[in-house]
Design a protein around this nucleic acid. Structure first.
Lengths: 205, 205
DNA sequence: GTTGAACCCGAGTGATTGCTCGTGTCAGCG
DNA sequence: CGCTGACACGAGCAATCACTCGGGTTCAAC
């Protein structure tokens, strides 16, 4: 077993009942997190929401931090899976690639706005130290895709390009969802497509 | 007096001594915030760091939230002033405008990395509801600058362009400072300049 | 010098926190 | 049936929290 799991469980749930209990705790954790934020996500509150005594939490988790870490890890995985699915769908649709991807991302984030808000504005230092943003492991993927489509990249620093593109797209879309600025969906899609697409075309085209 | 100040003071400090006390409280608040984050910024801790009894805090502030709001407001103002100064200096230098501005921003953020980290990763829901990012009031400025330099903007939605540019530059530079990724300073400056400069040139040139 | 307001202290309050542990239930097995 | 171990409960502990308040100190005004 690698010593780098999100956090070791105190007891591994073996029976059906206890596995269901852990599930209820994690679901309750997510629900409390979404409605009250990290500040309001106390152990007693999570236990109550799960219909469970406070002590039960500590049958399976070493401390509060481990619970929230697991909850966040799950939520991020869900979100990433959803985004990946949207990406694939936009690929199949065969639209203009850049704009299609951006639309898919924007819509996925819009649907999960509450989760995005909590994860990106509220997270305290103690949770999720290992990953800074949602998109950490995306960097390598994007770099690979860029290299595959443009093998003649020459002296362009593909890693830097990929890193910057991921941050740009991530934050512009998230900010748009959270701030709900006075800028229409079509307008922001147009501009982002123009900026990113144009840059890619000229830099790697 | 507009009813929208950060938070009304309980008593307005009139004597020299009390003004110094408020100053010590705010300085201590900033220091505690930087070293222990929002989670560790308790009233007792701030009072102790200021060399002041807990009760003294409540002579001048209605509650903890008001103290932290004021501390954050000050810190953000300082940071914005510093960035503005760097911008002006890069203007005087007469370099390539876009790249010079980006260098100035990147260096200012690098110098204040601890503050940037706390403000952008830690802030709880209760503090600073009014402003989502550092750069809120920058949007209008940038939009104005774009319009001034390109009066023939035609049907380009200048507001959307300015909004997106501010978010892009803000987050790419902040992420670079906080993540310290495997991407050199020159590389990220090159790419960001290419993306933003090229986009501006084609869209408004 | 006296007065009274401005100022500051810090022990203490009640609430809430993360977490423990003694008590007990219940399913499965011999 | 009776035993055993996995499982769950929830009152309660120590710590910490934001905040109060009674009383003392300092200082400007007269």
């Amino acid at each position: 077993m690698p010593a780098d799991e999100p956090r070791a469980m105190r007891r591994r749930p073996t029976q059906e009942r206890s596995r269901a209990t852990v599930e209820r705790i994690l679901d309750a954790g997510r629900s409390v997190l979404l409605t009250r934020g990290f500040e309001g996500a106390s152990t007693n509150r999570i236990a109550a929401a799960a219909g469970v005594g406070p002590g039960t939490l500590y049958q399976y988790f070493p401390d509060k931090e481990a619970i929230l870490e697991r909850v966040v890890e799950r939520a991020v995985d869900d979100l990433e899976a959803r985004i990946t699915r949207a990406f694939l769908a936009s690929l199949r649709a065969g639209d203009d690639a850049v704009r299609g991807h951006l639309e898919a991302l924007l819509d996925a984030l819009t649907d999960e706005a509450d989760l995005v808000r909590v994860l990106s504005q509220d997270r305290p230092r103690t949770v999720g130290r290992r990953r800074v943003g949602f998109a950490r492991r995306i960097d390598a993927l994007v770099a690979g895709a860029l290299l595959a489509e443009h093998p003649d990249a020459g002296d362009v620093p593909v890693d830097a390009v990929a890193w910057m593109l991921v941050r740009t797209v991530e934050h512009v879309t998230i900010s748009w969802v959270l701030e709900a600025p006075d800028v229409g969906r079509e307008a922001i899609l147009d501009e982002l497509t123009a900026m990113v697409g144009g840059y890619l075309g000229r830099r790697l085209g």
